[in-house]
């Protein structure tokens, strides 16, 4: 008898993917629907009123642009960290992963400045639905960034022990975490113009 679960590190012969990859994509599919619900709310609220402020007139576009650059860069370093594992270069993986986490933290710091600035000017979710949707969506996105930092930090520090015992599975984990991280980037790519530019 074997209690062993198959296709954790090697792909299933028919579906062609590992369990974790399929699982992460399913999770991302549900995330698409989550943000879909929020975007739907945004569209309905915005088209329902006449006096919706233009994002670039009330929000800080340079800071948000900086954050866009930070997040896109972190996406690249994330994919590079995975590629390093594929090339069996563990130290490079650590370097890229560290940069990814630092960039994620930088993103949050910038976001923190942005929020603090809004609070100083007494702009809260209760001020108007523009600010409400701004705070809720960026806040939820921020939570996703924090989640990504936790996962990536786990893979960088305690989780990386697995590289010695089961490099295939570890690479799979990093790829899965990467998929999530790129999704967080992808959401921001839509948030940025939707909230800040239009």
């Amino acid at each position: 008898m074997s209690a062993e679960i198959h296709y954790i590190s090697e792909p299933h012969p028919v579906s062609g993917v590992t369990n974790s990859k399929l699982g992460v994509w399913l999770f991302l599919a549900s995330e698409v629907m989550l943000f879909g619900g929020l975007f739907s709310a945004y569209i309905l609220l915005r088209t329902g009123v006449t006096d919706w402020p233009r994002g670039h007139e009330v929000l800080n576009v340079p800071l948000a642009t900086l954050n866009t650059v930070i997040l896109i860069t972190s996406s690249v370093t994330m994919v590079m960290s995975w590629a390093s594992l594929e090339l069996k270069k563990f130290s490079k993986f650590r370097l890229y992963m560290t940069i990814t986490i630092l960039l994620a933290i930088a993103f949050l710091v910038v976001k923190g400045f942005e929020y603090a600035h809004k609070f100083d000017h007494h702009h809260f979710p209760s001020t108007s639905n523009f600010y409400a949707i701004y705070f809720v969506i960026t806040g939820l996105h921020g939570l996703h960034v924090i989640g990504g930092i936790i996962v990536n930090a786990y893979l960088l520090l305690p989780g990386s022990k697995m590289w010695k015992t089961n490099p295939e599975q570890f690479t799979g984990r990093v790829e899965a975490a990467g998929l999530y991280w790129h999704f967080v980037d992808l959401v921001w790519i839509f948030l940025f113009p939707a909230l800040y530019l239009l």
Partner: peptide, 14 residues
Amino acid sequence: LLLAFPPLMAAGVL
């Protein structure tokens, strides 16, 4: 469950 629940999550957050 996977695709229908998240919009309620969005609504719940709102």
